[in-house]
């Protein structure tokens, strides 16, 4: 499939909401979050319930900001990292909005945005929401070790972001989704779950290249090309390889995982990761840049590492995937 083009009346991002935990709130993007939760449990009794509440509160915030009631929303495309996507399932329970659950690991937010844009563009939905979350503590216990276990993290390991991002997509706004490229599963044989940036980078490189090629775009078309959670290692690989292909993005390329934490002060090693990383950074800071006109065009590429604890224990390598969408201010692309 070639890059999708949403011609005619395009799907737009009408509103976003971003909620994060304490550590993320103390990072580089503090002013851009709607909610910063100081209590990692969010007043709940388990980490899973805490993550559900995070997602639920974020969706509530989005509806309030957009002045919408749940009955007016046609569909939610959402997901998270937990088995059977329980954060989304329980988090959405009270809203009674038709729901399609997704799993694309950390690529889920853009996966949801693409599907929401397709549903809106095809007139199957008037208002659709893309929504994801992740929580450091629920991810640690599912993918790694109990929180209190005394282990040492490697310098390439990443820190799962406690955060949720949500975007309301409908026709008739200023900030349009113009194109989308759906990623392919790509595996270059990396099996170290403490180096997921390196595992996902080839997928990001392939998808970004394909997007530029399919649309025949000049290197400086976007103000920002953004990847989801490659961290400092995956970011360097992506930048270098794209440059080798003649796609030199210079300082127009950033990575949400690399950006979200303060590398000097916060103990996050190679940077942030998780469904909530790209989602909260886009829904907070990047959407602010688009809304205020500080950025006119952004290529948002969410990257996912498609392993499970079982496949990791069995020694399998980590397949990566990356989906991207081109988001542009309407006044600039007419």
């Amino acid at each position: 499939m070639k890059t999708l083009s949403f011609d005619g009346q395009r799907p737009c991002i009408l509103q976003t909401a971003s909620s994060v935990g304490k550590k993320e709130g103390e990072g580089n993007l503090t002013p851009f979050y709607d909610n910063i939760f100081q209590d990692a449990y969010l007043g709940e009794k388990s980490w899973e319930k805490a993550e559900s509440k995070l997602l639920k509160t974020n969706l509530k915030t989005l509806l309030e900001k957009a002045n919408e009631s749940p009955e007016n929303i046609d569909i939610v495309f959402g997901g998270d990292l937990l088995n059977q996507c329980i954060s989304s399932n329980y988090g959405l329970l009270d809203f009674h909005i038709p729901f399609l659950g997704l799993y694309g690991a950390c690529s889920t937010f853009v996966e949801g945005m693409i599907l929401a844009a397709m549903a809106v563009h095809g007139n199957y939905a008037q208002k659709a929401i893309a929504l994801t979350s992740s929580h450091f503590c629920s991810s640690e216990r599912q993918f790694r070790f109990p929180l209190e276990y005394g282990g040492q993290r490697t310098p390439t390991s990443q820190w799962t972001v406690t955060g949720s991002g949500a975007a309301l997509i409908a026709k008739g706004g200023e900030i349009e989704i113009t194109h989308a490229t759906i990623g392919r599963i790509i595996d270059y044989g990396i099996s170290d779950i403490n180096n997921m940036g390196a595992a996902m980078a080839p997928a990001a490189i392939e998808t970004i290249r394909r997007h530029f090629q399919d649309r025949n775009l000049p290197n400086d078309y976007f103000d920002l090309v953004v990847t989801g959670d490659l961290g400092s290692v995956g970011k360097q690989i992506t930048q270098q390889q794209l440059k080798n292909y003649g796609l030199d993005l210079e300082d127009r390329y950033i990575d949400c995982g690399d950006k979200i934490f303060d590398k000097e002060k916060q103990d996050a090693h190679a940077g942030g990761s998780g469904c909530g990383c790209c989602a909260s950074v886009f829904s907070g800071w990047l959407y602010y840049l688009l809304r205020t006109g500080k950025c006119r065009r952004i290529l948002l590429t969410a990257t996912g590492a498609l392993m499970s604890p079982t496949s990791s224990f069995q020694g399998e390598s980590i397949p990566g995937i990356a989906h991207c969408i081109s988001i542009e201010r309407k006044t600039d692309n007419q």
């Binding site: 040492q152 490697t154 310098p155 390439t156 270059y188 044989g189 990396i190 180096n195 390196a198 980078a201 080839p202 490189i205 290692v233 360097q236 690989i237 270098q240 390889q241 390598s317």
Partner: peptide, 25 residues
């Protein structure tokens, strides 16, 4: 990218900061 897994791993390692062995020890 035209790289086999071994080449890619070596390439990725060149971007990966090593553990601070002496400090850790």
């Amino acid at each position: 990218m035209r790289m086999n897994p071994a080449d890619y791993k070596a390439y990725a390692d060149s971007f990966s900061p090593p553990s601070k062995l002496w400090r850790n020890m």
